[in-house]
Amino acid sequence: MIEIDEDKLIRCPVCDAVNIDKGKKNSCRRCGSAIYHHKKFSTEKSWAYLITALIAYIPANLYPMLVTSAFGSREGSTILGGVVLLWEMGSYPVAVIIFIASIMIPISKFLILFYLLISVKYPLGKDKKVNKHKLYYFTEVIGPWSMIDVFVVAILAALIHLSSVEILAGTAATAFAISVFFTLLAAHAFDETLIKENR
């Protein structure tokens, strides 16, 4: 017979099994994967990925995402420019989708992860009202959807490929793909058990 505090129970990030938090060296009883619990470097990995994503997000917005060259004239459009163009063309739903996927989702992910990473180290007074587990789950769910713009560029570039009319992917496509990739990594690297500890 063992007695444990309910707060000492953690979920394995790989197989979802319930485990007892044994401090530094945890390995899941079911799948054997390590449940990281490093007292000193708890959030650094996630910070590093997040900052990389943030840096990549700057060129992603400044450089053109799509370069359209038609009969000799080249024209580049940035992410925001593309949204404005679609709006002016009258395709409002698509403009909204691109705006949400490429601008709102990355920015809200940055803000949520910033908040989570800061609040698990330096708990703020009003933290108790926010369900941070739900917030984290939300970032995990919405995260991949910002890839939409990259895929769209890939499809357009592959399809419109004549000598007179051509669409090319721009520098921003690479930067944006890297940015999304690193926000996803940052979210995965975040240790959910830290939320529990600082509740």
């Binding site: 017979m1 063992i2 007695e3 444990i4 505090d5 309910e6 129970l9 953690i10 979920r11 979802d16 099994a17 319930v18 485990n19 007892i20 009883r29 369900n131 587990h133 739900k134 789950y137 959910e192 939320i195 529990k196």
Partner: peptide, 22 residues
């Protein structure tokens, strides 16, 4: 919370969304 042994934890599950023990 009392448990027979560690394997008794198999009868519990933590919610994916809000981390509540069920």
């Amino acid at each position: 919370m009392k448990l027979e042994n560690e394997d008794a934890l198999n009868h519990y599950i933590i919610c994916q969304q809000c981390y509540t023990l069920n």
